[in-house]
């Protein structure tokens, strides 16, 4: 099925962030608003980011 031209593309990275086409305004439950006008914004999905709600690569495997 073709994607409509104006549809917002969100890519789900397995074990990683959600990649959302920017700009975005992220609204957190506590009322915080985080804006990013990057062409793609990596939104943390693992809750480990120290820069939550933005990805800081903390989802990476450690050894």
């Amino acid at each position: 099925m073709p994607t409509p031209r104006d549809a917002r593309v969100v890519t789900v990275v397995p074990g990683g962030p959600l990649l959302v086409e920017g700009p975005v305004e992220l609204r957190l439950d506590d009322g915080t608003v985080v804006c990013s006008d990057r062409f793609v914004v990596a939104v943390c999905a693992c809750r480990r980011s120290k820069r939550y709600p933005l990805c800081d690569t903390s989802h990476r495997k450690r050894r």
Partner: peptide
């Protein structure tokens, strides 16, 4: 933040 996006 930038490079977390760029690497992907």
């Amino acid at each position: 933040e930038a490079d977390a996006v760029h690497e992907q």
